[in-house]
Design a protein around this nucleic acid. Structure first.
Length: 494
DNA sequence: TCTGGGGTCCTTAGCCCT
DNA sequence: TCTGAGGGCTAAGGACCC
């Protein structure tokens, strides 16, 4: 705990939705919902306009549509979010070498280590400059919290939202925390919150009063002791710039529960390959293979197997995952499958034992192809190709995700034939038309795709509709949010 | 109404070894 | 030599976070 508020927490406001509004002028001031658009999708981020309708993160998209039927529903574009995030993180690293990113839109900064702030006044000035710099560089607003510890800085930025800055002066924290809900504290979710509520503990002040022994008795040793310290405003965790990954995993939820055992086996193999692709991409190998199965009733079970040594061999991971699957009863149906690797080694090493006795397998999906497609099915499935998954797991619109488009029946994944229409146009994805220039897909279906032609710096643009296979229309990369010159006005006739 | 994806950390329990 | 305590490892599940 420091004597000056020199730990800064930055939280970008409704980040994904704000990026979409910045890049699509017609959406500014309108409810925008970014997330999974399939039947089992959930909301990743809702703009503040959408939140007024009661839409919030983690809500099923179907429910959001009922609450806010006129909102714009878009799939996430992680390539763009990552670019914007890189710009923001670079600004933070200009303040201090000690920057700890928590996600694309959040980070801690140790201002003291950067030598830019040693007291309240300089810390506040630094935070205000930062907000202005982020706005200038990205056109987006972020909220800043400043305090003497990470926990308090994070609480401060939450209180400052949206587009604000709050400093918690050391010495005032207990008084400030006391009336707040226990749910304000990091690590207190629905389960712990309910547990505490049943014991009559609803505020941080109640927690402090309960005492450490009582809390340890209620929620366990580590959690109880940590909770008590947080209730007193004590938190001495340092800002850590580099964090080693501890596990790598991939999972898919299917639009329709899978029943066919052959298909389930095939999906597990695909996931194993994707997982290895990610594992190799990160320069790791791992020793423990984990299979995750969520059944029709949402009950989730995991099975794991630890190998003699770390591996990044797709055959080894595939076979381990297949063995684990054999111990799982899937007769009621499966809504999610996942494959993960833990016990990571920070180097890649051949697993000679396993390779020596591992015959290459090539089991295909040739039966059981009639069941539902994954919400975000990857079309390639080859190991080592790398993945376009975002850090929050949403798949990029690479022409594969897009339930806003007429869904093509699953045809057995990597080996299936191309969809009849040839191309898919996920809502929100970037396109370029030979005549009209850059735009984005507003929606598609029944053989047509509707495109709005506008760009980050332009006025709201016009909408046009094309055939799905229009040769003049093609997917394109996102345009930068700021710094692009306004293009000449587009002629109204082709 | 029906609940994503990728992580981390903690707890509990069984087993083996010292 | 037997027994118990305790540590390390593995497996499974749960809570939480963004």
């Amino acid at each position: 705990m420091r004597s000056a508020p020199t730990i800064l927490h930055l939280d970008m406001d409704a980040f994904y939705a704000a990026v979409e509004q910045a890049s699509k002028p017609s959406l500014r001031g309108k409810p925008v919902i970014v997330g999974g658009l399939g039947p089992r999708g959930v909301v990743a981020t809702a703009s503040y306009e959408a939140r007024r309708f009661g839409v919030h993160s983690a809500m099923p998209t179907a429910q959001a549509r009922r609450l806010c039927p006129n909102g714009a529903y878009l799939i996430p574009r992680f390539t763009l979010y990552r670019e914007v995030s890189d710009t923001v993180m670079a600004l933070l690293r200009g303040l201090s070498p000690l920057v700890e990113p928590l996600s694309l839109d959040e980070a801690f900064v140790d201002l003291e280590a950067g030598g830019v702030a040693f007291d309240s006044a300089t810390a506040r000035a630094t935070g205000e400059h930062l907000r202005a710099d982020i706005m200038a560089a990205t056109g987006l607003s972020g909220s800043v919290g400043l305090a003497g510890s990470k926990m308090l800085a994070k609480i401060a930025s939450e209180e400052a939202k949206p587009a604000g800055l709050l400093v918690i002066e050391p010495g005032t924290e207990r008084e400030l925390l006391a009336p707040m809900s226990v749910r304000t504290l990091p690590g207190v979710g629905p389960a712990t919150g309910e547990h505490l509520r049943r014991a009559g503990i609803t505020t941080v002040g109640d927690l402090a009063e309960a005492g450490e022994d009582e809390l340890v008795r209620m929620v366990g040793r580590a959690h109880g002791a940590g909770l008590y310290r947080m209730a007193l405003g004590l938190d001495d965790r340092p800002v850590v710039a580099e964090r080693d990954a501890k596990s790598v995993s991939v999972e898919d939820t299917f639009d329709v529960d899978l029943h066919d055992r052959v298909r389930i086996r095939y999906e597990v193999q695909r996931l194993a390959d994707r997982c290895v692709g990610r594992l190799r991409g990160s320069g790791h190998s791992g020793r423990t293979i984990v299979l995750k199965v969520r059944r029709y009733d949402f009950s989730t079970l995991t099975r794991s197997e630890t190998l003699r040594g770390p591996t990044d061999d797709p055959v080894v991971v595939r076979e381990a995952a297949a063995r684990l699957l054999e111990s799982v009863d899937t007769t009621g149906g499966v809504r999610l499958l996942g494959v993960g690797v833990t016990g990571l080694a920070d180097y890649t090493q051949e697993d000679l034992f396993a390779q020596a006795d591992a015959p290459a397998t090539g089991e295909g999906p040739d039966s059981g192809a009639a069941e539902g497609g994954a919400t975000g099915r990857g079309g390639r499935g080859a190991a080592g190709t790398g993945e376009a998954d975002g850090p929050d797991g949403w798949r990029e619109p690479g022409g594969e995700a897009g339930p806003a488009v007429a869904l093509v029946p699953a045809t057995g994944g990597a080996r299936g034939p191309e969809p009849a229409a040839g191309r898919r146009w996920p809502a929100g994805s970037d396109v370029r038309h030979a005549v009209y220039g850059p735009g984005w897909v507003q929606g598609s279906g029944v053989g047509r795709v509707t495109v709005r032609f506008e760009r980050p710096g332009s006025a709201p643009g016009r909408v046009r509709t094309f055939r799905l296979d229009d040769p003049e229309l093609e997917p394109s990369d996102p345009l930068p949010l700021v710094g692009e010159e306004e293009p000449p006005p587009v002629s109204d006739t082709p």
